[in-house]
Simulated assay, not measured.
Amino acid sequence: MMTLDVVLSLSPAACRAYYEARAEQVRAWSTDGRRVAFPAVALRRVVTREGVHGIYRLRVSDQGKLLEITRQADLR
């Protein structure tokens, strides 16, 4: 199992596109410089009225499947 920390800064409008499945994957940079893509439906667990802003930890299985997303720090 692996964890990646990603920085996300998404407006409410951007989150809406993910929520309505107009975009299937979120693409972001990890804090160690890797490009990361994960299913957009995962944002439903962390979105607020202000969108999604902060550092989030992704827990990923050995097969590359996203298991969990949790907020680690706020960017505001």
Rank of each mutant, 00 (worst) to 15 (best):
T31I: 07
Y19D: 15
R27V: 15
L58C: 04
V46W: 04
C15V: 15
R44C: 12
D74E: 07
Q63P: 09
D32F: 02
R76W: 03
V60P: 12
R22N: 13
L10A: 00
V6I: 04
H53V: 10
V6A: 01
E20C: 11
E20T: 15
R22D: 14
D74V: 02
S30H: 04
G33D: 11
V36Q: 09
R16T: 13
S11A: 08
E50Y: 09
R35Q: 14
R16Y: 12
R44D: 14
L66A: 08
D74I: 00
V47F: 06
S30P: 11
Q25T: 10
T48P: 00
D62S: 15
D32P: 05
A42M: 13
M2A: 07
A37P: 08
Q25P: 03
A37Y: 09
T3K: 05
L4A: 02
V60G: 12
V41G: 10
F38W: 07
R49S: 11
Q63N: 14
V36K: 09
L10P: 01
R35I: 09
D5Y: 00
L43S: 06
T3I: 02
D74S: 02
R49H: 10
V26D: 01
A14G: 02
F38G: 06
V60D: 08
Q25F: 12
S9Y: 00
I55Y: 00
I69T: 03
R16S: 10
A73W: 03
M2L: 03
L67G: 13
T3V: 01
I69C: 05
L10M: 04
F38H: 07
D5E: 03
A13P: 02
R34G: 06
P12A: 05
V47T: 12
Q72Y: 01
H53T: 07
A23E: 13
I55P: 00
L43P: 02
Q72N: 01
T48V: 08
S9R: 03
V52D: 01
Y18E: 02
V46Q: 09
A14D: 13
A13N: 12
E68W: 09
E68V: 12
E20S: 14
K65R: 15
R35H: 10
H53K: 09
A13M: 09
R57V: 06
L75R: 07
R49F: 05
A21L: 11
L58Q: 07
Q25V: 07
R59K: 14
A14N: 05
G64F: 09
F38Q: 08
H53M: 04
D5K: 09
A17S: 13
R35N: 11
H53P: 01
P12V: 03
A37N: 10
A42H: 05
A14T: 12
A23M: 12
R71Y: 02
T48E: 14
Q72F: 02
M2Q: 07
V26N: 05
L43K: 06
T31L: 11
G33E: 12
A17L: 15
M1R: 06
A14S: 13
D5G: 00
L8D: 00
S9E: 08
I69D: 01
R49A: 13
V7E: 10
L10H: 00
S11C: 04
R57H: 07
T3N: 03
E20D: 14
L67H: 13
S11G: 07
A13F: 04
L58Y: 04
G54C: 04
E50I: 04
S61C: 10
Q25S: 11
L4Q: 06
S61V: 14
R22K: 14
A13R: 12
S30A: 13
V26F: 06
